[in-house]
């Protein structure tokens, strides 16, 4: 289809990063896959416009995070919505058994989201600010706090693991 020209390579590159970022941010593999697919579908629907944006990837993260928020609201209305969404799909892989992963998962929600968008999605701070709806300075401060907390956490783990 002519209107979807260029979508496929962008999608192939972006989808795995998007899912991974959302998984770290939400801690919910099913929700991450669903929100990523929905956001990419909207990118497809508006590809003619999205492809000309300065950062199609930044846009798709904004849409995906909105979708996560909507899905969480819907879940409160329909408790087993998530179960239905996942019906027919293979179960997602378990979380890695890794100290770094656990330390990132233990960060407060805002820090975790900033870490996911910076280090997994590889978005610049300005786009992270847009996606999170905060000022750019707040992103820098949040990432700094996250790194400080991670360093502390990982140092404690290292000491504990050393005989």
């Amino acid at each position: 289809m002519r209107t979807a020209e260029g979508f496929e390579p962008w999608y192939a590159a972006e989808f795995p990063r998007l899912v991974a970022s959302l998984r770290i941010a939400t801690g919910d593999a099913g929700l991450a896959e669903e929100a990523a697919a929905e956001a990419c579908a909207r990118a497809y629907a508006k590809w003619g416009r999205v492809r000309r944006m300065e950062s199609p990837s930044g846009w798709v993260y904004v849409v995906a995070l909105n979708e996560v928020r909507s899905a969480l609201r819907r879940r409160r209305l329909e408790r087993n919505h998530a179960g239905r969404l996942r019906a027919g799909h293979a179960p997602p892989p378990a979380d890695p058994d890794d100290a770094l992963w656990r330390a990132v998962r233990a960060l407060p929600e805002r820090m975790r989201l900033a870490v996911a968008l910076r280090y997994v999605a590889d978005l610049p701070e300005a786009e992270i600010a847009t996606a999170m709806g905060v000022a750019r300075g707040t992103v820098a401060a949040t990432l700094h706090s996250a790194r400080r907390q991670l360093a502390r956490e990982l140092a404690v783990l290292t000491i504990k693991e050393t005989p």
Binding site: M1, A4, F7, E8, Y11, A12, F15, P16, R17, V19, A20, S21, R23, I24, A29, E33, A37, E38, C40, A41, Y44, A90, P92, P93, D95, P96, D98, L100, W101, V104, V115, Y119, V120, D122, A146, R147, R148, L150, A151, L154
Partner: peptide, 28 residues
């Protein structure tokens, strides 16, 4: 922490499942 965090993307990539096909996305 910055150095260690480079590893989080690697861990995340290990979790990658097959993305929906482009026709699936088009249908959505």
């Amino acid at each position: 922490a910055t150095t260690q965090l480079a590893g989080i993307a690697t861990l995340a990539r290990q979790l990658a499942t097959a993305p929906p096909s482009v026709p699936d996305i088009a249908s959505r």
